[in-house]
Design a binder for these strands. Structure first.
Lengths: 225, 225
DNA sequence: GCATTTCGTTACCTAATTGTGACAATGATG
DNA sequence: CATCATTGTCACAATTAGGTAACGAAATGC
């Protein structure tokens, strides 16, 4: 899943909703990024706002179509736009007019996904935070364009952080997610693994690009770019 | 949670009730503010009075619906209004007619919340007081558009104040919230931390924008703009 | 079964945080 | 205006939290 819209609150909302469905949702606010991300993340469905700054939604859709056949759902401000778009044969698979209820959008997305996977072929689960990319399906981590080798614990730890970027996670929470509920021992263990993790992704604690220390609590992954 | 109603005592009552449920409740008395706050705080549920001064409740709901899919519970004065509203397809999720018992309202809100999070998906907890914004999920504080770095104690202290803006908190109350019930020592400690906090958020004690001194009691966060 | 990797613990170092006491400033009271 | 209570500010030492390295044990792979 990729959502392309320049209105941040709307994007966050849609993300939240789709995530509850167990979907992996990435987002961006501008056209060129969107094209890039479709190429990189190979989403099954793209929700695309027509009125984007920089590159027109129509143009974005065309470009995507040159190399991908993901499903595209267009967001338009006016209903009569839809006819024009269909006339232009942009190649979108569905249209939703603003204002829409996110609930409605979610329903349409689900419909697309049902179409896309006749049975199996689960969507790739990928998360991104800046230059960092975590693929939980392949259990791979990429920094810029090179792969980073992590130990199981490190991978789990990073995953725990990247599932909710920007949310501070206490050491206890992280331990529960990575080591399990009933783990007993010094919580300082988390610090050690965070330290190892940081070294591998070239993250300086004093000036972190990714993992921020939340004093007195734990850690969080930096949100956005 | 956001409660929108122009009758202050009613709002306080509802707040009190919902807070006992451990909910994070913000409130406002007018329409435009309500729309703004929904955008900023992204509440899961909004309780909205139909008869608001300035902007009609119906209009407020419509505007909210253009960008958010939070649950909206409408408060109406007359039962027969409900039919009309449903006819208008305003997009509210539930209706409660005045006069209502707070307990009833709380039950409905809880029902909404149950629906909203099939399992987890914790709500992002944000509070606002004028130019100041506290995000307890990310553990971040923003003043206008720049982030303010606080120590754990300062953060807890500010959080304690902003959960109930406009309510005077005694030093003892603050100590209990921040340091815990059984803390022993000089209450003067609070003053020192308030002082540090004020410096960081550029708040002059002689002319405070945010933290007001309540002589003989403690402190309070200024209410509204 | 041996070599290698990974893991949890411990110890140590540094820097941030915190509580305290002294003292200045402010506001209330008469 | 004088006095007292209350609040604001500052500096400082003790403590704590977090980062890092090292090490033996356990797990893994061959």
């Amino acid at each position: 899943m990729l959502v392309v819209d320049d209105e941040a609150p709307l994007v966050r909302l849609v993300q939240e909703y789709l995530r509850r469905d167990g979907l992996c949702v990435e987002a961006t606010g501008n056209g060129p990024d969107a094209v890039q991300m479709v190429a990189e993340l190979e989403p099954t469905v793209v929700v695309l706002d027509l009125g984007l700054p920089g590159m027109d939604g129509v143009e974005v859709c065309r470009r995507i179509r040159t190399f991908s056949d993901c499903y595209v759902i267009m967001l338009t401000a006016r209903a009569d736009e839809v006819d024009r778009l269909i006339g232009l044969s942009v190649g979108a698979d569905d249209y939703v007019t603003k204002p829409f209820s996110p609930r409605e959008l979610v329903l349409r997305v689900r419909a697309m996904l049902r179409r896309s996977r006749p049975e199996s072929a689960a969507e790739r689960h990928r998360h991104r935070a800046g230059a960092l990319m975590v693929d939980t399906s392949a259990r791979e981590v990429w920094l810029d364009d090179s792969q980073v080798e992590l130990t199981p614990t490190e991978f789990e730890l990073l995953s725990a952080l990247i599932t909710e970027p920007g949310t501070a996670k206490s050491r206890r929470e992280l331990i529960t997610k990575v080591w399990g509920e009933e783990w007993i021992g010094d919580e300082h263990l988390v610090d050690v693994h965070i330290g190892n993790l940081r070294r591998k992704i070239h993250d300086d604690p004093a000036w972190p690009r990714f993992i921020h220390t939340v004093r007195g609590v734990g850690y969080k992954l930096r949100t956005g770019e």
